[in-house]
C-alpha cells in the first residue's frame, strides 16, 4: 500500500509541489513565499517535498534516523514553527486530495490510508516541535548566562572607590548575584565607598528597590558605604510614588556627582592644575 502511495506521489511530484506552493502563498504571516526569488522557492519546496516523502517508505514504525535528518534540514530553512506546521499540514492535505483524485485512495482502503498518514505525519510534527523547543531552551539558557556575565562587575576607579554599573532588568536571581559580586568586590578591592549606578536599569519597582536597599545594608555590614547614583527623573518619581524609603543612604543624580561626593567622603578632591 505504501509503495503505491509513494509511486503515486513521485510520479506527480511536480503538480503536488505546485499545488502546495499555491496553498502556502495563501497563508498569511510568512513572507518566505512572497519575498524569495522564484527559483529559490522552487528549490526549497522541492527539498521539503523530498524530505516529506522520504519518510513514507518505511512500513510501520517511524525511522528515527530519517526523521531526525528531516528535522535537522527543515529547521535549517529558518521558518517559524507555526509555518512549518502549516507546511506539513498543507503537504499532507495536498497529497491526500491528489491520491483521492487519482483514485488511489477509495472507500475500501480509506482506513488503511488514514493509518499510513498518521504514522507518516505525526512523528514528523513531534520531531519538529521537539527540535524547536530544544533550540529555544538552549537559547534561553545561553542568554541567561550571557546576561549574568554582562551584569554586575565592580570596577575599582580610585583607591577606596569602586563603581558597579547595573544594566537591564533586575530579577531576584540577578539581585542575588549582584549582591555577591558587590560584597566580594568591596572586600577584595578594599573599597570604602561603592557607587551603584542604576542609569541602565529601566524600571525600579518595589522589588528592585528592596534588593538595592538590601545590597546597601550588606555593604554597610562589611564596612563600606553604598551610594546610589544615576537616578533619572522618572525613577525618582516612581520611588516616591511607591513610598519606597531610601533616605538612609546617599543618592545622587549622576555618576559624576556621586564620584565627587565619594571623593569628599574619603577626604579627597579633584583639583585643576594650571597648564604650562
Amino acid at each position: 500500500m505504501n509503495k503505491i502511495m509513494v509511486e503515486g506521489i513521485n510520479k506527480n511530484m511536480d503538480e503536488i509541489i505546485e499545488r502546495w506552493i499555491t496553498r502556502m502563498k495563501e497563508e498569511k504571516g510568512e513572507r518566505f513565499f512572497h519575498f524569495m526569488p522564484d527559483h529559490l522557492v522552487e528549490k526549497t519546496s522541492r527539498e521539503f517535498a523530498v524530505l516529506m516523502t522520504s519518510n513514507i517508505n518505511e512500513s510501520s514504525a517511524a525511522n528515527t534516523e530519517r526523521i531526525s535528518d528531516f528535522t535537522e534540514k527543515v529547521v535549517r530553512f529558518g521558518w517559524a514553527i507555526k509555518f512549518v506546521n502549516k507546511a506539513i499540514d498543507n503537504f499532507s492535505d495536498v497529497v491526500y486530495e491528489f491520491l483521492e483524485e487519482k483514485e488511489i485512495i477509495n472507500e475500501s482502503n480509506l482506513r488503511t490510508f488514514n493509518l499510513i498518514f498518521r504514522n507518516w505525519i505525526n512523528p514528523l510534527r513531534e520531531s519538529i516541535i521537539d527540535a524547536y523547543s530544544t533550540e529555544w531552551e538552549r537559547t534561553v539558557s545561553l542568554q541567561k548566562i550571557a546576561l549574568q556575565e554582562l551584569s554586575a562587575s565592580l570596577i575599582p576607579v580610585f583607591e577606596k572607590i569602586s563603581v558597579m554599573p547595573l544594566v537591564g532588568t533586575i530579577d531576584t536571581e540577578r539581585a542575588k548575584l549582584i549582591m555577591e559580586n558587590l560584597l566580594e568586590g568591596v572586600v577584595s578591592q578594599r573599597a570604602e565607598v561603592v557607587l551603584l549606578d542604576i542609569t541602565g536599569v529601566p524600571v525600579v519597582d518595589t522589588m528592585v528597590a528592596h534588593h538595592i536597599i538590601q545590597a546597601a545594608e550588606a555593604v554597610r555590614l562589611v564596612g563600606a558605604k553604598c551610594m546610589l547614583v544615576g537616578i533619572r527623573p522618572e525613577i525618582a518619581q516612581t520611588i516616591v510614588a511607591l513610598g519606597i524609603d531610601l533616605h538612609e543612604f546617599t543618592t545622587k543624580s549622576t555618576l559624576q556627582r556621586g564620584m565627587q561626593a565619594a571623593l569628599g567622603m574619603t577626604n579627597r578632591a579633584i583639583v585643576e592644575v594650571e597648564a604650562n
Binding site: 560584597l183 578594599r190 570604602e192 550588606a218 554597610r220 555590614l221 564596612g223
Partner: peptide, 24 residues
C-alpha cells in the same frame, strides 16, 4: 571583617545591626 557571605545571610535573616560602625 564581616565576610560577604555573613553579611548576606544577616540581611536575609532581617538583622541589620543598625547602630554600629563597621569597617573592612
Amino acid at each position: 571583617g564581616i565576610q560577604p557571605a555573613v553579611a548576606i545571610t544577616l540581611i536575609e535573616l532581617g538583622i541589620r545591626l543598625n547602630n554600629v560602625m563597621t569597617a573592612l
